[in-house]
Amino acid sequence: MTTSAPSSTHNLIELLVSRVVEDSGTDTRIVVLTRPDTESDTLTIWVGASEGEAIRRVLDTNVTPRPMSHDLVKSFGEHFGIKTERVVLTDVKSSTYYATVYLSSKGVERMIDARPSDAIALALRTQAPIYVTPDVWKRRSGQNLDAWLNKLESKNIGTQEV
């Protein structure tokens, strides 16, 4: 955690969570993020199954009967008046992404380090924008994954909602 003021979003690229794809046979999920301006360009992040489900649950607008872990973080924010300003994918090393969550409360701004899965799961629940730095966008892995993703998705049709 650092206390420096969050930098502006100048130069950052906004991303939208497009979908969460099941990598069948493995314990992982693939979070697909797209640029609103060019939907054909994607950034894919591999996350654990439970982390992936935490994200998919919001996208499906399925109301879970019980608050899950990220709903609890959202609940803390509501109690204490903490706003999620934005989430930024700040680094990628050996295909591992790093994220920073920018928070504010009564004018006091804080940054916390997080895994992208936690950052995205919170951002979606708190309607906070998700950004990537131009550098990370340039160095994103799997730029040619689209064909493979499509194959994976067609294979999984009908199994996602189970």
């Binding site: 955690m1 982390e51 935490a54 872990s69 990220h70 609890l72 973080v73 803390f76 924010g77 204490f80 903490i82 591992t96 969550v101 928070l103 409360s105 006091v108 804080r110 916390i112 380090d113 997080a114 895994r115 936690d118």
Partner: peptide, 18 residues
């Protein structure tokens, strides 16, 4: 190696001294 969800939750609370 990386903060898990509840470590993230703890950081979130620590950030505002909760």
């Amino acid at each position: 190696p990386r903060p898990m969800t509840h470590d993230f939750m703890k950081s979130y609370l620590d950030a505002y001294n909760a």
